[in-house]
Amino acid sequence: MHFEYNVKSGDFSNAGSASSQIKKVLKQLNVDSVTIKRIVVALYEAEVNVVAHSFGGTIFADVTAEEIILVLKDTGPGIPDITKAMQEGFSTASPQVREMGFGAGMGLPNIKKNADKLEIRSEVGVGTEVKIMVKLS
C-alpha cells in the first residue's frame, strides 16, 4: 500500500494529521499497539519537523506485510550538521515552535529510538529527506 500526504510549512493546526491517518491504517491492518506507537511517534516527530523547519514537503508511506517505510521529503534550509542535529538538546526551533511544546532538541533522537532504521540526507539551501523504517512482524 502506498500513501502520500502534503505537509505545509507553519501549519501547526494540521501538524500530525498525516500521522493520525497512518495510525488508522495500521490499526485496520491489526499491527500491534506497541509497534503502532513506535511508528506514529517517529512519524509525528518528523512531521512536526517539516512543519516547523521547512518550506513544505511530502510524506510518502509504503506499507508491506513485513515493514513500513516512511519518507519525508521537504524543500527548505536543510540541516548543515546532521551529527549535531542528532544530539539530544540541540535545537534551532523558533519561539513559536517552543510554544507548541516542541523544540527541545529531542525530535531526531526520539525518531532514531523508535525506528529500526533511520536515514537522513540533507543539502543546505535545498532540503532534507528523512527515511524511517520499522519492521511490522
Binding site: 501547526f12 493546526s13 501538524a15 500530525g16 500521522s19 493520525s20 512536526v48 507548541m100
Partner: peptide, 9 residues
Amino acid sequence: IQSLRTAEM
C-alpha cells in the same frame, strides 16, 4: 491542538 495530537500518537 498539539497536546492532543501528542496524546493521540
